Simulated scan of single mutants.
Amino acid sequence: MRTLTTTEELAAFCDEAAGAPYVTVDTEFLRERTYYSKLCLVQLAFPGVGDSNAVLLDPLVDGLSLDPLIALFRNTNVVKVFHAARQDLEIFYVDHGVIPEPLFDTQVAAMVCGFGEQVGYETLVKRISKASLDKSSRFTDWSRRPLTDAQKKYALADVTHLRDIYEHLAAELERSGRARWVAEEIAVLTDPETYITRPENAWERVKTRSTSPRFLAIVQALAAFRETYAQSKNIPRTRVFKDDALSELASTKPMTLDDLGRSRLLLREARKGPIAEGILAAVKAAQELPKDELPKPDTSRDQLQVNPALADLLRVLLKARTESSGVAARLIAPAADLDALAAGLRDVKALSGWRQEVFGADALRLCEGKLALAVKGRDVEVIEL
Rank of each mutant, 00 (worst) to 15 (best):
Arg2Val: 06
Arg2Glu: 15
Arg2Trp: 01
Thr6Leu: 13
Phe13Asp: 11
Arg31Trp: 08
Leu39Val: 02
Cys40Val: 05
Phe46Leu: 06
Gly48Ile: 12
Leu64Glu: 07
Leu66Asn: 09
Phe73Asp: 07
Asn77Lys: 13
Val94Lys: 10
Ile99Asp: 11
Glu101Arg: 03
Val108Met: 14
Val108Cys: 09
Val112Glu: 06
Val112Ile: 15
Gly114Lys: 12
Gly116Glu: 10
Val119Glu: 03
Thr123Lys: 09
Lys126Arg: 15
Lys126Val: 02
Ser129Val: 06
Ser132Pro: 00
Asp134Asn: 15
Phe139Tyr: 13
Asp141Ile: 14
Asp141Pro: 10
Trp142Ala: 00
Ser143Glu: 14
Ala150Asp: 15
Ala170Ser: 11
Ala171Phe: 01
Glu172Gln: 15
Glu174Phe: 02
Ala183Cys: 04
Ala183Glu: 14
Ile186Cys: 04
Pro192Tyr: 09
Thr194Glu: 12
Tyr195Gln: 13
Ile196Gln: 10
Ile196Tyr: 02
Pro199Asp: 08
Pro213Asp: 08
Leu216Ile: 07
Ala217Pro: 03
Arg226Tyr: 04
Arg237Gln: 07
Ala245Phe: 10
Thr252Gly: 02
Met255Arg: 15
Asp258Phe: 11
Leu260Trp: 06
Arg264Pro: 09
Leu266Thr: 07
Ala276His: 13
Lys284Pro: 02
Ala285Cys: 06
Leu289Asn: 08
Lys291Met: 02
Ala320Val: 02
Glu323Asp: 14
Glu323Lys: 15
Ser324Tyr: 02
Ser324Ile: 11
Pro334Val: 05
Ala336Phe: 00
Ala336Gln: 10
Asp339Ile: 01
Leu351Ile: 00
Val358Glu: 02
Val358Met: 08
Glu368Gln: 15
Glu368Asp: 15
Val380Cys: 05
Glu381Arg: 14
